[in-house]
Design a protein around this nucleic acid. Sequence first.
DNA 1: TGCCTCATAGGACATATGCACTAGTAGACC
DNA 2: GGTCTACTAGTGCATATGTCCTATGAGGCA
Lengths: 213, 213
Amino acid sequence: MTVRRIETVIVADDHPLFRQGMRHIAERLYPQARVREADTMDEVLDLARAAPPQAVFLDLLFPGLDPQRSIRALREEFPKTSIIVVSMIEDEALIRTVMEEGADGFIAKSLPAAEIAVAITAVRDGEFVIRRNPRTDLVVSQPGLPPLTQRQRDVLRLVAQGRTNKEIARELDISPFTVRIHVSALLRALDVTSRAAAAAKAAHAGLGGLIGA
Amino acid sequence: MTVRRIETVIVADDHPLFRQGMRHIAERLYPQARVREADTMDEVLDLARAAPPQAVFLDLLFPGLDPQRSIRALREEFPKTSIIVVSMIEDEALIRTVMEEGADGFIAKSLPAAEIAVAITAVRDGEFVIRRNPRTDLVVSQPGLPPLTQRQRDVLRLVAQGRTNKEIARELDISPFTVRIHVSALLRALDVTSRAAAAAKAAHAGLGGLIGA
DNA sequence: TGCCTCATAGGACATATGCACTAGTAGACC
DNA sequence: GGTCTACTAGTGCATATGTCCTATGAGGCA
């Protein structure tokens, strides 16, 4: 995937200190970009509509905000924007939910700045990224998915939810033929030969799948 | 699924105290059953071959034992036995792995006896069961799968790994036609209409899918 | 300008999948 | 013995899926 030039970035967080930190990271990564800061979800939407951002860094605990709906709404209105959720909470179910709702990356606030920057770059390169604080007990290998185009990520999300090509076509408002193209490319990229296997890989990588209680 | 009478149970754990506790639970649940105790994996196999058990309670940290291979071997040799893994460790990746290798249930050792008994009954009723110690922070709803027959669980495991009907047929050593029967019944039971959706449901229920480090 | 990738849309074709039937065998239950 | 379910195996058929092909427009890059 050709990485499009970053022109506008929105940092949405109600903690001034953290917002400053994120701005700093964004400015280091993309010196030419304009970084906007937002205090509320409405402000995010206003800023985004005024100048569609290439990336949004969204605090999960945004004041009076329902993460699910907001992320889905953002994804629908700005399909090409990298939505990166940054959060204090590292609960798995929440992570899976926001990823399924359309986020491209989930980054724990507790990570060092350098790691956050790396994760952001990976997302811009087409990867789904989930970075939590390293746990001390058991080290688990994170399978990870290869870089995918935005459309491939959209499609994978839906395939991993068990949708058919027709349903995906309706959801993304494109032709079923086009969906097949994306699915084919996706299967090649994931090195599998069936959508069910793709769903399994997605589950292993952190999209979908959840152990509860 | 008709619950077959429990005649023989094997408790495999190298902690005598815990083994006693498990024996107690088993005897309360199935007064008529013979409960065997095993110290090593070889002993488990010897006992099982002498008298095929309806249920095996297996300590995950068995001396010098590779959980993956042992569980898969047990499952292959005794396809109808309920394999219930009981463990000190509650690491998710480990749980998913043992469930994928053929276990029917995973139960944390830290749970009270009553809950362990309930979980065992549910497994015997055809459910996949994963019970960890309740965490205090965020309560997550565990989707849970409806009761399935042993064959349906076998098939679901493989579907959730992205296998095709042919592959499943080879793996289970039955006809592809028969696999289709099981898949059809499975889809009905899960209330979905495609294997990919079934895989997604399985992922949500704790089979497959893993968020790492 | 030319070259590239990505997203879009469609045709053709082989295979896989899912469903609706029939049917035999084995075990559990009454 | 009669009845029930699970597991097995098959046929037939409609639809879904996946691959290979062509083709167009947008946008980035050299």
